[in-house]
Simulated assay, not measured.
Amino acid sequence: MSQDTIDLLKAMVVILLVFALSTVVMMYLLFAYRTFGGNLPIIGSLPSYEPPAAIPLLVDVRWLVVLGATFLTGSGLTLILTSQTMDMAMLIFAKAMTLIITAAFGIFGGIWLYMRLSAGTELSLASLNRLAIALVIFFVLASVLRLSSLRASGALRFAIAAALILLGPIVLVSL
């Protein structure tokens, strides 16, 4: 495992914990605002917010499908061309998407913890399956299957590039 992959894993753990803790703190502040700040002019006019309402937004991965499909096609095109700058840009994007999806898991974890501590209710984890698949795919593309490592496969890189270019629209239509 390379140092770059270890650094990405460390960043994922930190992002997960920070976003989970931030979500719990934010939920309890919203609860306090609703409970004790009802007659304050600014806080009293805030609409009521229930934490489970955020879960459908977190598990809606349509935007990830569009970004992922475009990323696959862009990776294929980048693999055909020879540019270290494009390789680095695609690597940074894959890492950023990995961290964004990890943050979504942190937010879900914070909402889950808040719901367990406040109401004692459970949240369904089945809705996170597609989000977990997206996380694994972007992590693999950010660590193991980097374009720079695929570029070293010689003429096979053109076949891989063609497969990536064709895979983008298939992912977009199928998911």
Rank of each mutant, 00 (worst) to 15 (best):
A119D: 14
M97F: 15
I80D: 10
L21G: 08
R116W: 15
D7Q: 11
A104I: 06
V171S: 07
L17H: 07
G168I: 14
A159V: 06
T35E: 05
D60R: 03
V24S: 01
L67T: 08
R34V: 12
L117I: 14
V24W: 02
G44Q: 01
K10H: 08
V65D: 10
L147G: 09
G120A: 13
G120S: 15
S2H: 14
A162H: 04
P41I: 12
G109L: 13
S2P: 06
L141C: 00
L135G: 04
L40Y: 14
L99E: 01
Y28M: 02
R146F: 00
Y28K: 15
P52F: 05
G76I: 09
I101V: 06
L167S: 04
G168E: 09
R62H: 06
S22V: 09
M1T: 10
I6R: 08
G68D: 06
P56T: 03
L166C: 07
A163I: 07
V144S: 14
M26P: 13
A20Y: 03
Y49R: 01
L21E: 08
A104K: 15
K95Y: 15
L72H: 06
G120W: 07
G106C: 11
M86F: 00
A96L: 10
Y28F: 11
D87G: 01
L46A: 00
S153L: 14
Y28S: 07
T5E: 06
P52C: 04
R146I: 02
T98I: 12
A119T: 14
T70N: 12
R151H: 12
P56W: 01
L99D: 04
G38K: 07
S75T: 11
T85Q: 12
I133C: 02
F105L: 13
A32D: 13
S45C: 03
A159C: 00
L164M: 11
S153N: 01
I6P: 01
V171Q: 03
F158A: 04
